[in-house]
Computed example of a mutant assay.
Amino acid sequence: MLKFLCFAVLVAAANAIACTPEFCQMVRCAAVDATSCKGVVKANGGMCGCCDACITELAEGDKCMSILFLGVPQTVQCADGLFCDPKTSTCKSSISKRDLTPCATKLAAVNARLAAQPMLLGLEKPHCEDDGTYKGMQFAGSQAYCVTSNGTMIDGYMVNRWETGDDMNCQCAREQYAYMKTGLIGKMFYCDKNGNYASIGCSGSVCYCQDKMGKQVGTSTVGIWEKDSMNC
């Protein structure tokens, strides 16, 4: 019951703020004294962008929960070089070796934008590895697709979002892409449409069962001309 009431209050607060074109005509702005403002004076930073506002800057580690509230005019913001981390509700620096990697850099930018515009729809967060590089599978609307570790899209590997399950890793697509970049020829890759290794793989004229990472399963093998008879 308490959770429902809190949710209802948030919804009511968001709906109560109607920033119509005529709204600012009814607002009388008070002057903001830059000398007494313990922060920065933000032009049109008040309710609905009608008036200037004194914005307090938060340091790294400071709580920034209010930034995430829907429909609440902001009187605080994380200082330059920081963003409000929605996981910890604290201002966090994005300047580190990990966070300078492509995926982590984009994720920080998306989080900062969502913190500034919580009701923004359609902005997709990238999926990153622990080291800040891109995971093999990424989303765009209703589609899931494969990318390299630096975020380059790999053509030919895209499926519906609801078809990914929990095992789409794009490992085969990635290794095939990397091999083709070397200019070498001769190695064959057997990938599913989602970029994973197919259940049957071949090396030269010998075929075998394999897992989604391309590792051989069991010891049974057949000639490549018998590949279609395998039950993996």
Rank of each mutant, 00 (worst) to 15 (best):
M1F: 08
F4T: 12
F7K: 06
V9M: 12
L10I: 08
L10E: 05
V11Y: 00
I17Q: 12
I17D: 06
A18E: 15
P21R: 04
E22M: 14
C24M: 09
Q25I: 00
R28D: 14
A30N: 13
A34C: 03
T35G: 08
V40S: 13
V40F: 13
V41Q: 11
K42F: 06
A43W: 00
G46R: 06
M47S: 08
C48D: 07
G49E: 10
I55M: 09
T56Q: 12
E57T: 05
L58D: 02
E60R: 02
D62H: 01
K63D: 14
K63C: 05
I67Y: 01
L68D: 00
F69E: 12
L70H: 04
G71L: 03
V72E: 00
Q74L: 09
T75E: 12
Q77H: 08
C78E: 00
L82E: 01
L82V: 02
C84V: 02
K87E: 09
K87V: 05
K87M: 09
T88L: 02
C91L: 02
I95M: 13
K97T: 04
K97N: 11
R98K: 14
T101C: 08
C103H: 05
T105P: 01
L107H: 03
L107E: 10
A108I: 00
A112R: 11
A116S: 10
A116L: 14
A116H: 06
L120W: 03
L121M: 14
L121P: 03
P126K: 13
H127Q: 15
H127I: 13
C128N: 09
T133R: 11
G136P: 06
M137H: 05
F139W: 13
G141I: 00
Y145W: 10
C146F: 11
V147I: 05
N150P: 04
N150Q: 15
G151K: 05
M153P: 13
M153T: 14
D155A: 14
G156C: 12
G156A: 07
Y157L: 05
R161Y: 09
T164K: 09
Q171V: 14
C172A: 03
C172K: 02
A173K: 06
G183Y: 04
L184G: 08
F189G: 05
D192Y: 09
D192R: 15
A198T: 07
S199A: 15
S199M: 12
S203H: 10
S205I: 13
Q210C: 07
D211Y: 03
D211L: 05
M213N: 15
K215M: 08
K215E: 07
S220G: 10
T221L: 08
S229A: 11
N231R: 14
